Every structure is written in structure tokens, then in C-alpha cells.
Amino acid sequence: MISRFSVAMTSEVAQHLTGHLRRADGQEDCAFVLWRPSTGASRTTALLVEVVLPRKGERIVHGTVDFTSAYFLRAAALAAEHGCGLGFIHAHPKGRGW
């Protein structure tokens, strides 16, 4: 049997991510997300349940984007506190496809 993997989120989470990742200046941006697994007979889905936005000084935007260890550690602590997995999302505003 072939297992499939997918990602799902509520429209609220999608809007939160879109609002953050679509920068008016056209530069890349990033965010961590908390996720929970959902396993069915032939598919495993990562359910994105919370967006962990960077705070001031936790990421450096310079055409591309970097994040600080403080941001990663804060997001990882939240994931552990809530019993979730930690995911990373990175936007490529001028990219095409995957």
C-alpha cells in the first residue's frame, strides 16, 4: 500500500500565513507553525494548528530571509508545551511552482 502525505489548515491559519508572507516590498519571509498529525488508512496529514510569527529582531529580511536562534527556540518551546510538531514555512514571492 502506498502512503500519501498532505498538509491541511483552517482558512484562519491560511489567512494569517498569507498576511505575513505576502510582503508589500516583494521580499521573502518566514514563519514557524505548530502542527499535529492526522493518520488515516492511506494518508498522513499534517494539520497546521498555529502560526508562530517572528517578533522584532527574530528575523533578518534582506532580499532573502534569515531567522535567529531565539525565534527557533521560542517556537520549539511552544511546540513542546502544546505537544505539537514544529514546521517551517518560507515564502519565495517571485518563485514558480514547487
Rank of each mutant, 00 (worst) to 15 (best):
V7Q: 05
W35P: 01
G97I: 04
A41R: 10
V65Y: 07
R22E: 11
A24R: 15
T68G: 04
R96P: 02
D29Q: 03
P54Y: 09
V7R: 14
R22D: 15
F5S: 12
S11L: 07
R36Y: 02
S11C: 02
H16R: 14
T64W: 11
V33R: 03
R43I: 13
L78F: 05
L17C: 01
P37E: 08
L34E: 03
H16S: 13
H82T: 15
W35E: 14
Y71A: 10
V52R: 02
F72I: 03
L17A: 06
G63E: 04
L78W: 07
D66C: 08
T64K: 11
R96D: 10
H16E: 14
A70Y: 04
V13D: 00
C30P: 01
M1E: 13
R36M: 14
D29S: 15
F72G: 04
E81V: 04
I60N: 13
E50G: 12
V65S: 04
W35M: 08
L47H: 12
L48S: 01
T10D: 00
L53E: 15
F5M: 10
C84P: 07
A76Y: 03
M9V: 00
I60Q: 14
A75Y: 11
E28M: 12
P93C: 11
H62V: 06
S3I: 11
R43Y: 02
K94I: 03
A70Q: 10
D66P: 02
H62R: 07
G85C: 06
R74E: 13
